[in-house]
Every structure is written in C-alpha cells, then in structure tokens.
C-alpha cells in the first residue's frame, strides 16, 4: 500500500511539472478577446529580449498590434497593466505606454516601459486596445518563479 501511494504521489508530481519553456526572446502572439486584434509581444529585461521578467526588476513589453478584421483599422491608444488574480492586486507601479500607429500599413508598435512584477506567482498581462469606439482586451499569463 505504501509503495502504491508513493507511486501515485510521484506520478502526480510529474504531472505538475511546467511545460518546457519556449525559446528565449521569441515573439509571441495572442488574439484579443473578441477576435479583433492580433497582438505580438516580447519582453525586454535588462536591455535584452527575455522569456520572463525578473522579480522586482523593471522591464519593458514590446508590442505589435494589428487588426484581424480590417487592415486599415489602427489602435488609437493602448493601456498596459498586469494583475495577480489570485492575490487580488496588480502592480505597484504605473508603466509608461507609448504607441506608434504604424503609419502606412503594418502593425501599430507599442511599448510599455517600467513594468514591474514585485512578487513571484501568476501574473496576467492585460493589453487594452482602443480603436476609438471600443476598448478590447488581449491578455496572457506569465508565471514568475
């Protein structure tokens, strides 16, 4: 019985392993929650592209925001924020967000500087994209070890 229980415990432990991380510095993509936008993003940590930020170290999110519905549609404004849903709070700092609307064609380019995750755990990054009519959210999770 003891061996059986121990085996189950080990199997469960195996199952709780996180999946293998993607290559560092890769651009990721996420579709906004109503399907209007595709948001590509990557993190810049200590001046270099990185997979995850460092706890209590400021970092930057680089963004490319492109309409999935209408190539001529542009993001007019971006809001970038992050929260820890399990902890019922967000960041302690306000990042500085800049947006270049992309000019002729292509995606709008944005940056959020001064992001800071002050705790380990699951963070939800929220990008709110304002097209002048509605503000649509794109989101993804970052697990900070």
């Amino acid at each position: 019985m003891k061996i059986f229980l121990a085996t189950i415990a080990l199997l469960l432990a195996q199952g709780s392993q996180p999946s293998a991380p993607a290559p560092a510095a890769a651009w990721r993509a996420v579709t906004s929650n109503d399907g209007s936008w595709i948001v590509r993003w990557r993190l810049i940590v200590e001046g270099k592209p990185a997979e995850v930020p460092l706890v209590r170290k400021r970092f930057t999110i680089e963004l490319q925001v492109e309409s999935k519905l209408d190539p001529t549609m542009r993001a007019r404004a971006l809001t970038v924020d992050a929260q820890m849903p399990e902890h019922l709070h967000g960041m302690n700092v306000a990042p500085t967000v800049a947006l270049d609307d992309g000019g002729q064609g292509g995606a709008a380019l944005g940056t959020a500087q001064g992001m800071l995750f002050h705790m380990s755990g699951r963070w939800e990054v929220d990008i709110d994209i304002d097209d002048g009519t509605t503000v649509e959210r794109a989101q993804w999770n970052i697990a900070l070890p």
């Binding site: 003891k2 061996i3 229980l5 121990a6 415990a9 469960l12 709780s16």
Partner: peptide
C-alpha cells in the same frame, strides 16, 4: 501529493 507523501 503532500498528503500522500506523508502517508507513506
């Protein structure tokens, strides 16, 4: 896991 681990 912890419970099982303790049990054994």
């Amino acid at each position: 896991i912890v419970t099982l681990a303790f049990l054994c």
